[in-house]
């Protein structure tokens, strides 16, 4: 069944959410999410690369010999990452410094390879770019959720503004590496619990009116 163009975008945010559903791109998801602004910056950077690489790879899918498609994916993706890195250094130097080595490491982000292999190699340019946009937005949203929770609990702030009041004693654990693991674990578990409940409900409904 052919998906509509809107569904091409939304599937990346919901059913094929890269972080919470497919468990891809976990390294940056945990490493840069100590504050919301870093999480959003990382998300936007990866989205840019996803849209460009998906579009480009879809455009050239006819002329790549299938045997050497992986090295070509690597070259194209790394090129866009380098371009994005230089842009970042010019326009957002503070963010570039805060994300550190995770900017060049976008080049080995599994989400981008997965979208190239699964989608861009088989679909048209427009659809591929929308798919990249969707996966990128899903990644950004996941990072924003993780980073928002960690910044509020661990620092009492959101985007640098105090939101929890003066008397709030931050839970330091949350901005430490350990807190990242905990929050991710519990969020994935919550999503799984939701799925299990929904499935149980469905089977009850099916059983009652076959």
């Amino acid at each position: 069944m052919q998906r509509t163009l809107v569904q091409e975008v939304t599937k990346g945010i919901t059913i094929e959410n890269p972080v919470f559903r497919l468990l891809l791109g976990l390294c940056p998801s945990l490493a840069v999410t100590t504050s919301l602004i870093n999480g959003l910056g990382m998300g936007v950077a990866a989205t840019f690369v996803l849209i460009c690489s998906n579009g480009m790879l879809s455009l050239i899918r006819g002329i790549i010999p299938p045997k050497i498609r992986i090295p070509i994916y690597i070259i194209v993706i790394a090129t866009f990452v380098s371009i994005m890195e230089m842009m970042m250094e010019v326009y957002t130097p503070a963010l570039h410094k805060a994300l550190g080595i995770f900017v060049p490491l976008i080049a080995v982000n599994c989400i981008i390879f997965a979208r190239a292999e699964i989608f861009a190699g088989k679909n048209g340019v427009g659809r591929s770019m929308l798919d990249g946009l969707g996966a990128g937005l899903g990644f950004t949203l996941s990072l924003a959720i993780l980073a928002g929770i960690r910044e509020i609990l661990g620092d009492g702030k959101l985007l640098g503004y105090p939101v929890m009041g003066q008397s709030y004693e931050p839970i330091l654990l949350m901005i430490l590496p350990a807190g990242g693991f905990f929050i991710l674990g519990f969020l994935v578990a919550a999503l799984k619990l939701y799925d299990l409940r929904a499935e149980a409900k469905k089977s009850v409904l099916l059983a009652s009116n076959p």
Binding site: P177, A178, F181, F182, G185, V188, A189, A190, L196
Partner: peptide, 20 residues
Amino acid sequence: IPESMKGVPIACVTGGLMAL
């Protein structure tokens, strides 16, 4: 382990404790 915690979630929590 509760059904929802099986697999990656419990691995995450274990990893967190190790990081600590």
